[in-house]
Design a protein around this nucleic acid. Structure first.
Lengths: 224, 224
DNA sequence: TTTGTATGAATGAAAG
DNA sequence: CTTTCATTCATACAAA
């Protein structure tokens, strides 16, 4: 039909998604295998430029590639872990640092200590065998949305955001987010709560930051 | 595939994550566009209640939404800057840190203080184009980018991740992605930049994430 | 064409 | 605020 596949993946502005070339993939995979799991912005930039000679590519492509690749390797590894876990009963085997399947190509020498390296950030579930049925992986840190746990900056953090039930409004104003008319309160108020918002510039038309709801805009909430 | 979409996003207590409805998104985006970048707890509370009529939603959802949205908008902008910048060159470029040829290119106009309003909190890097190899955070109007011009959070404020440029190079190293020999720099460096990577577990030499290119590996780019 | 699958992209949620 | 992780959504492409 549309015989027009994006084979080369060079298809320019087709608007569709990036379709990496073989070379690009190879390089990315090699970098990954060499230990680059989470490139910095700068590295991404460099990689992107290098890969560009093989076809259109943007920084975000590289970024996503690493994100996805890492994530998928991880999930794959998880399975392998399970397998390894069970196979232990058969092989009496040593506890591989796992991801043994990674294959250490000839030129890739597993760094002696990298060990769980793959999970530097998740030391906890490093080599732990998994439950057959699968496990949650994420620790579910806490009940953020439910109770205290301020994840607000000290800056405006005089409240618990979700729980806000106990608003310590110094005075009384509700500081309605959706006033039906310009109040000016927000501006003043903000200066205290959220000073960064309406900083310095006094550009006449910059209604941007100051949240001046007085402007003619669609008030989603007016109905309420 | 359709494993389980929460289409309506109303999916109650499914335990899964919040799946905003179209309306909710619209409203959030509008608020954001109107200048609300970092809602206070009260504001979050209010917004949450308003949005609740469209489906299940909690304060934390709103909180996270703003955080993510802001961060990603910034990231996007940065990338756009990069692209815009690069598009003017035929770059083929070197990867130098470069704060050097700074020369304030023609297209860099010091924002009249009013900046674009888009970044109330980041007036400084508003529209500044970047240097090919990553720019020094900002264009160094005056004291040639050598010292503290902090309009960055003292904290750590790195550059963005997407395509971007650099990671707060404190000094000068090129931090080349593809060194021909082990440098060890990365490791040390990382400790500062990206502490999360090799964090906690005291593995003697977790070279994992740190990209220890010191190993004998195929250097894809050596030719270049 | 239909379906399965690999994977690019997007984004909610958190941890740092 | 920054960075990373987990999930999910969307699409390209291969296989049936």
């Amino acid at each position: 039909m549309e015989g027009g596949k994006n084979l080369g993946s060079n298809s320019p502005a087709a608007g569709s998604r990036w379709n990496p070339t073989k070379e690009q993939i190879n390089m990315l995979e090699n970098l990954y295998m060499q230990g680059l799991k989470t490139p910095s912005a700068q590295q991404i930039q460099q990689i992107t430029e290098k890969l560009r000679v093989f076809g259109h590519i943007e920084g975000k492509n590289v970024f996503y590639w690493f994100q996805n690749h890492k994530a998928r390797q991880r999930q794959k590894q998880k399975q392998d872990n399970n397998i390894a876990y069970f196979s232990r009963f058969v092989h009496t085997t040593p506890v591989f640092p796992t991801y043994q399947n990674v294959v250490c190509s000839p030129y890739y020498v597993q760094p002696p200590q990298s060990d769980l390296g793959f999970y530097s950030q998740y030391p906890k579930l490093a080599v732990a065998p998994l439950q057959p049925g699968g496990f949650k992986t994420r620790i579910i840190p806490k009940n953020i949305g439910k109770n205290k746990d301020k994840f607000m900056n000290p800056r405006s953090r005089n409240e618990e955001l979700d729980v806000i039930s106990n608003k310590k409004l110094t005075n009384q104003e509700t500081l309605d987010l959706f006033p039906l008319h310009p109040t000016g309160i927000l501006q003043a108020k903000t200066g205290t709560l959220n000073s960064a918002e309406n900083s310095t510039h006094s550009s006449p038309s910059s209604s941007e930051n100051n949240c001046n709801f007085g402007s003619p805009f669609f008030d989603f909430f007016e109905s309420q």
